[in-house]
Design a protein around this nucleic acid. Sequence first.
DNA 1: TTCAATATTTAGATAAGACTAAAAATTTAT
DNA 2: ATAAATTTTTAGTCTTATCTAAATATTGAA
Lengths: 218, 218
Amino acid sequence: MATLSEENYLKAIFHLSKYDKTAVSTNAIAQKMETKASSATDMIKKLFEKGLIDYQKYKGVKLTKNGRLAAVSVIRKHRLWEVFLVNKLRFSWDEVHEVAEQLEHIKSKKLTRELDAFLEFPTEDPHGDPIPDANGNMPSSQKLLLAKVKQLQRCICVGVKDSTPKFLQYLDKHKIALGTEITVLSRESYDESMAVKINNIQRSISKEVAHNLFVKIS
Amino acid sequence: MATLSEENYLKAIFHLSKYDKTAVSTNAIAQKMETKASSATDMIKKLFEKGLIDYQKYKGVKLTKNGRLAAVSVIRKHRLWEVFLVNKLRFSWDEVHEVAEQLEHIKSKKLTRELDAFLEFPTEDPHGDPIPDANGNMPSSQKLLLAKVKQLQRCICVGVKDSTPKFLQYLDKHKIALGTEITVLSRESYDESMAVKINNIQRSISKEVAHNLFVKIS
DNA sequence: TTCAATATTTAGATAAGACTAAAAATTTAT
DNA sequence: ATAAATTTTTAGTCTTATCTAAATATTGAA
């Protein structure tokens, strides 16, 4: 059974590997975990000893099957708890992350199973991120960044790339939520901003925002 | 802010002091925490440094106001989570303790407050133990052990002293739950067992059971 | 009241996870 | 292809919470 710290490293590696596609460097892990490279090396050795990652000195790491399973299990719990906090308690989507970081480490198969049922088997968390199923499979979706949407296309907001409170509060303030319809009117090549229609009002969206909002063509 | 281990020691001290009435010995703490006396001494020093307990070498410990508050806060969370597990998820009263031991350490004022509201401000956990309010006040009740009930008195089961799965499963098996009415018919001085009427059926209750079941005279 | 039994504390060690500083390997640039 | 820059690893230290073994204090029984 993985310790709290091990679980956090596994989660970091999973995210850095883009859902398990690429190898991850020691420095990248250290940066994500906000520790020093030497600490990351120590933990890498430990995870390797436990068979949770593949590792060769200086060559970066990849999750093994068991490592991936452990990481995904933590992510599953994180996202289920986020749904609980927003749907059942009165948390807003910018408040849930910190608490879910704690709740994701609770170890009880039954709790996770029953929570999932209580929430009626959600497939996405409040930020539109997919919730892995009990076997560790991620539901995949065909979302893309708003920045990539062609002129005059209509799309629906389905998720955020940046889920920091600052960005989420920006979206709240401008009445952009999951499900909001957005029509791309034009793009400004100078600053990569876009003119869009949201809730029948024409607005300008900055490059920063357009690169952090996921949409689905409708 | 107290660490997980500190919180567990504070909770142990609170329980051993019978809700803060008596001083607690190092050995008693070590036994409750399933560690060695030397480890208990180490932690006692730490809690003393942090102003959470009063302590003089060889004289035992007592919680300070802050220590009591910290202990009660953990107990409040423990019992609220137990209510959640039984009332909202499908846990039975003998399954909740282990998970609540983990959940009680989650640090979020808002979570505790919202959970309390979601559960509609319960005053007792699934074992009949009182849930302290947000200010750390324990609702007191006038429960007594079944063993103390006089002959021919009627009473209602309101709690358990022993809340281990074994005892709780014994009660389930014999259809004794919180709210069950019990009439004491007679006592057997030889083995301290009692003849009782439960659900209109006459049964015998052992000394062990009678000393672990709380009732209220009705 | 004195000494044996018991309880408590101290001293020194260990493991996990972090750190700093220095060494070694790899990558990049000329 | 070699030197400089960067990345990664190693070596040694720190803190928290634990342990064992030994020392000291308290309690209680004769």
